[in-house]
Amino acid sequence: MDLLTVKNLTVTLATGRGDAAAVRDLSFTVGHGEFLGIAGESGSGKTMTALSLLGLLPHKGRATGSINFDGREILTSSKREYRDLRGKEIAMIFQDPMTSLHPMLTVEVQLTEHLRHHRKVSKDAARQSALELLSTVKIPAPEAALRAHPSQFSGGMRQRIAIAMALACEPKLLIADEPTTALDVTVQAGILKLLHQLRKERNLSVMVITHDLGVLSSLTDRIMIMYAGSEVETASTSDLLQRPRHPYTSGLIAALPGHNDVAKSSSSKRLLSIEGMPPELGNFPPGCAFHTRCNYAIEACKSALPERIQLSESHRIYCPVDPFSGKAGIEVAQ
């Protein structure tokens, strides 16, 4: 049994022009100790997916389907049950540490408040584990750091503090929403290294959400690619990066700097970048949402939702076209 099993998750947001689906019929799993990457452009629904796991959708949002976490159905949880889950069993790291830490509360308060709330530990015990957490995430002088406010730290240090905050109650699942996007490139490497290390030291399942496939390449076991609220391709990291099958995936990989050593074998050189813009929420094209930007789209793509095609046990795509043969139809396994 996987730690997290999401089935047919659909998230709708009420907008000025009626309901719009931000996430459409999404199914995926995260195993115990597994690192899953979810990648897609902004507006692909990846953040809404994460927020629905925590029951933190904006108040105009609604989720349907099924989310099974650690053997329990949680999508139907009450507010209270969700609160007991959040921070304790599922924790989240947000994109921008400059805004996700409270500017007016000390690091100690922010590191210990949920620990004391969930585990009912004493102030001193909470402080002790806060100190340990700070050394785990390699904050120098943890004693002094506890008394400080976030404004006294650099962006990278703040993200380390945010990670420490997320780890405080030893959650089973950690959701990291663009954990490195807001940081300098040099600092990014440090944060990725830290996540690697945590992976080795703790039995932690992690869901990393990003628009940057480069971040995921060294970190995750599997990657799911999303477009306009739907899954388009899922595969093991190496499979996905070396043998992408969906035109959108190839496009993302082609857009990576230095992608040539990854995907030079194929005829994907034409896919240097993806033309156009991702569709706006509430304005997703019919059929395969990607067809408006796809060089391989056939007539069927414009009207019918693409079927799931299982290429191998771990590799599946939602696309009837094989860009590498240029032919429509299913050409399983290369």
């Binding site: 933190l56 959040r86 921070g87 949920h114 969930h118 905050m165």
Partner: peptide, 26 residues
């Protein structure tokens, strides 16, 4: 609307605590 309020909610604190400690103070 700030990120840090969402982060506070993601910690599973009660809504009362979130409002009192994280929203009202600023």
């Amino acid at each position: 609307g700030n990120d840090y309020v969402r982060a506070a909610r993601a910690k599973g604190l009660s809504e009362f605590t979130v409002i009192r400690r994280h929203v009202l103070r600023p």
